[in-house]
Design a protein around this nucleic acid. Structure first.
Length: 656
DNA sequence: AAGGGCTGTCATCAT
DNA sequence: CGATGATGACAGCCC
C-alpha cells in the first residue's frame, strides 16, 4: 500500500474512557460549582447543575431549559419532587450510578417518573420494585406510585430534622421486620416473616430515632451506631431456606441482561448505611441457588460490585480467571463492545475473580463457617472472607458480629461499650447496657429469637411467631418482658424527643413573635412620625387660611362646627378670643374641650415612650378619635387641605 | 461531693 | 381483655 493510498483511509480512534471522563469532569465541576448555569430547587434544598446535563437526562429539564434560557435560571421543581428523591437522580445524571436504598427507592422512582429521567424509569424500577417490595411473588402489593411520598413528607414535617442517627434507626426499623425466621438446624420452623411492604415501611419509618437532641444518646450511637447497623444488616440477612435464585435481582439481571435490560445494579454498602438492599436481595449463593442458606460474603460482594450476575448460574467455572470475569462483565454490559473495556474494568474483574477463588476455597464455601455456639444464628464469616476488600465494604465486621444479638458480641467485641463485656448484669442502665442485657437474656434462655425480632415484629406477627415456637413459660415471660421494656424504652425516647421538639418549637415561636413585635414597633414609630408631620403641615395651612381671611372669633366657631375636633382650628378656638389665631403658635399647649385630641406630637411622644418601655399598643394611633377626625392622618395630603381651605372660605363667605 | 443531664423502668391511663 | 403508646415519676449513672 503506497503512502498515497494510505492517506485516503480515515482512521478512527475510539476511547473507551472518554465519555466517562467527561462525565466525571462535569461532576467535579458541579461539585465545585464551576460552569454551573442552573439552580434546581427541590423543596427547600437547592442544587447547582449544568443545563445540558440535566436536559440530556430528563424530559422535564429538556422541556424547561433551552439555549435561550438565561444563565443562572432557578428551576423550582414540582411539589411531588422531593430533595430526597431528586438528589440521587442528579447524581445519576452525573455518574450513571443510581444509589438507592429500599427506603428511598420509591421516592426516587416517583421523582424519576415526574422528571422523565431517561433510562431509569422503566428499565430500572419496573422490575426492581416488585423484587423489593414483594417477597411473596405477588405483584399486587407493588405500589404503583410512591405512597411513601406522603409518609416521607409528613415525616419531614413531623421531624424537622433527621440526622444520621435517625437513618440508622430507620434502617433498622425497615430491616427488622424483614428478617425471616431462620433456624438453620430446625427446618421445621418455617421462615414466616415476609419482606415488609411499603405501607409497613412507612409505618415503621415513623418510628425513627428520637435522640438527635440528646448528646449522650448521640455519643453512644456514634460509638455503636454503625456496628449496630451492621448487626441489623446481619440480623436481617435472609438465611431463608425457601429463597431461590429468583429472589436475587442479580440473577434476574443476569437473565435480563440478555434481553433488554442494559443497566446494572450494585449492592454496595456505602458509608451512608445504605444497606437495606444488601441483606435481602443479595444473598450469597454458594453454588447455584439451591435453597442453601445464603449469606452475603466477599464473593457475593464481588459479583455485586462488578455489576455481575451469578457466575455459577451462568454455567461458568469459578476458576475461569480473568477472561471469564471479563466476559461476565462484558456480557452484562451488552451495550458495550469489547473494545470499550477499560483497564480499570479489567482490573476489577481480575480482583473479583481472585476473591471468588479465595473465598470458595473455604470449607463451607465462600468463607461461611458454622458458629460453634448454641446461639440461634449460626453463621459467620471466616477471616479470609473478611479480608476481601469488597467484603469489607459490605460490613463484614457486622457479619462477624452477627452471632446472636450480642450474646457473644460481648466477648471482647469492640463494637459494644466496654462495660458490657463483663458480667455485671445488675447495671444495665444505659441504652447499650439495657439492650445488651436483653440480648444476654435471649441467649441465656436459649431463645430462638433475636431481640430485634422480639421487639420489632408487629403484634400479629409476634403472636404468630410465639405460637410457632415451643417456648416454656419462663421463656415466654422473658420474651414478653423484653418486648415490653424495649417498647417502653423506645416510647420514652419518643416522648422525650417530643418534649424537646415542643420546647424547641416554642422557643422558635417566641423568637418569631419577638421579631414581629420589633417590626411592628418600628412601623408604629414611623407612622407616628408621619402623623405628626401631617398634623403640623395641616395646622400650618389652617393658620395661614385663618390669617389670610382675617376671621373673627364667631366665624372661627362656625368653621369649627364643620371641622374635626382634632383639627388645628380647635386650637385657635380655644385660644383667647382676643388673640389672633395666628398668634396661637404654641399649639401643643392647647387642650381644648373634652374629647379633643391632644396635640399629636405630645401624644405620640407619650405613646412612643410608653410602647418602648412597656411594649403597649400605640394609643395615639389606634385610639379612635371621638369625632370625625380621619383615622389615617397621613391621608391628609395637600390636596385635601386645599379643599378644606376652600370649603372653609366658602362657608365664611356665606356667613359674612 | 453536689447537681444537672440522660436514660431505662415502672405505673398508670387512654386507645 | 390484652396489647400498645404516652407520660409522669423515680432511680441510677455519668460528667
Amino acid at each position: 500500500m503506497s503512502m498515497e493510498s494510505s492517506k485516503l483511509f480515515k482512521f478512527t480512534f475510539q476511547s473507551s474512557v472518554h465519555s466517562s471522563y467527561v462525565l466525571q469532569c462535569l461532576n467535579e465541576q458541579r461539585k465545585k460549582d464551576l460552569l454551573c448555569d442552573v439552580t434546581i430547587v427541590a423543596e427547600t434544598q437547592s442544587f447547582r447543575a449544568h443545563r445540558a446535563v440535566l436536559a440530556s437526562c430528563s424530559d422535564y429539564f429538556s422541556a424547561r431549559v433551552s439555549s435561550h434560557t438565561p444563565e443562572g435560571i432557578v428551576i423550582n421543581l414540582p411539589d411531588e419532587v422531593t430533595s430526597e428523591g431528586f438528589e440521587p437522580l442528579l447524581d445519576f445524571a452525573y455518574t450513571s450510578k443510581l444509589i438507592f436504598t429500599k427506603e428511598n427507592v420509591l421516592e426516587i422512582r416517583n421523582c424519576a417518573s415526574v422528571l422523565g429521567f431517561k433510562n431509569l424509569d422503566k428499565a430500572c424500577f419496573d422490575f426492581l420494585l416488585p423484587k423489593f417490595f414483594d417477597s411473596s411473588k405477588s405483584t399486587s402489593k407493588v405500589p404503583k406510585k410512591c405512597c411513601k411520598t406522603k409518609c416521607c413528607k409528613s415525616r419531614r414535617v413531623e421531624l424537622s430534622s433527621i440526622n444520621k442517627d435517625d437513618a440508622i434507626d430507620e434502617d433498622k426499623s425497615l430491616l427488622q421486620p424483614s428478617q425471616p425466621q431462620v433456624k438453620a438446624k430446625e427446618p421445621s420452623c418455617p421462615p414466616s416473616v415476609a419482606i415488609e411492604d411499603v405501607a409497613k415501611s412507612c409505618y415503621s419509618g415513623k418510628d425513627t430515632d428520637y435522640s438527635f437532641l440528646c448528646p449522650k444518646y448521640r455519643k453512644f450511637q456514634i460509638a455503636c451506631g454503625k456496628e449496630r447497623s451492621c448487626l441489623d444488616v446481619c440480623d436481617s440477612t435472609p438465611m431463608s431456606l425457601d429463597k431461590t435464585d429468583d429472589d436475587c435481582p442479580l440473577n434476574y439481571l443476569s437473565r435480563s441482561s440478555n434481553g433488554d435490560c442494559k443497566e446494572t445494579f450494585s449492592c454496595n454498602k456505602t458509608d451512608e448505611d445504605e444497606d437495606s438492599l444488601l441483606p435481602e436481595f443479595c444473598p450469597l449463593n454458594p453454588g447455584p441457588c439451591t435453597g442453601q442458606p445464603s449469606f452475603p460474603t466477599g464473593n457475593e460482594s464481588a459479583h455485586s460490585i462488578c455489576d455481575s450476575g451469578d457466575l455459577s448460574n451462568r454455567g461458568m467455572s469459578p476458576r475461569s480467571g480473568i477472561d471469564d470475569a471479563e466476559r461476565t462483565y462484558m456480557d452484562l454490559r451488552d451495550d458495550q463492545s469489547s473494545e470499550q473495556r477499560s483497564t480499570e474494568e479489567i482490573e476489577v474483574a481480575k480482583q473479583l475473580t481472585f476473591w471468588q477463588d479465595s473465598c470458595q476455597a473455604s470449607p463451607s464455601g465462600l468463607g461461611l463457617v458454622e458458629k460453634p455456639s448454641n446461639c440461634p444464628k449460626n453463621w459467620y464469616l471466616d477471616s479470609r472472607a473478611l479480608d476481601c476488600p469488597f467484603m469489607q465494604r459490605f460490613g463484614a465486621e457486622g457479619a462477624q458480629l452477627h452471632d446472636g444479638e450480642g450474646g457473644s458480641t460481648s466477648q471482647g467485641s469492640p463494637y459494644l461499650p466496654s462495660n458490657q463485656s463483663g458480667e455485671d448484669s445488675d447495671s444495665f442502665d444505659t441504652e447499650g447496657d439495657s439492650e445488651s442485657y436483653s440480648s444476654e437474656r435471649v441467649c441465656e434462655m436459649e431463645l430462638p429469637l433475636s431481640v430485634d425480632q422480639i421487639v420489632s415484629l408487629s403484634r400479629n406477627d409476634f403472636q404468630q411467631m410465639l405460637k410457632q415456637q415451643c417456648l416454656t413459660r419462663e421463656q415466654l415471660d422473658v420474651v414478653h418482658d423484653i418486648r415490653r421494656r424495649s417498647k417502653n424504652r423506645i416510647a420514652a425516647r419518643r416522648c422525650r424527643k417530643r418534649k424537646l421538639d415542643c420546647i424547641h418549637n416554642l422557643e422558635c415561636e417566641i423568637e418569631k413573635l419577638r421579631s414581629e413585635r420589633e417590626k411592628l414597633t418600628v412601623e408604629r414609630i414611623k407612622l407616628n412620625q408621619m402623623q405628626l408631620k401631617t398634623w403640623q403641615s395641616y395646622s400650618g395651612l389652617y393658620e395661614r387660611v385663618c390669617a389670610e381671611a382675617s376671621l373673627k372669633p364667631e366665624q372661627l366657631q362656625v368653621l369649627a362646627k364643620y371641622s374635626s375636633p382634632d383639627c388645628p382650628l380647635s386650637a385657635f378656638l380655644c385660644s383667647s378670643p382676643d388673640s389672633h389665631p395666628a398668634q396661637a403658635s404654641d399649639l401643643s399647649t392647647h387642650t381644648c374641650r373634652s374629647g379633643a385630641k391632644p396635640p399629636v406630637h405630645s401624644s405620640m411622644e407619650n405613646t412612643v415612650a410608653q410602647s418602648s418601655s412597656q411594649n403597649l399598643l400605640p394609643l395615639g394611633v389606634v385610639e379612635a378619635p371621638p369625632h370625625t377626625c380621619p383615622p389615617d392622618a397621613s391621608a391628609f395630603d395637600k390636596t385635601e387641605c386645599r379643599s378644606m381651605v376652600k370649603l372653609s372660605t366658602d362657608l365664611l363667605g356665606q356667613q359674612v
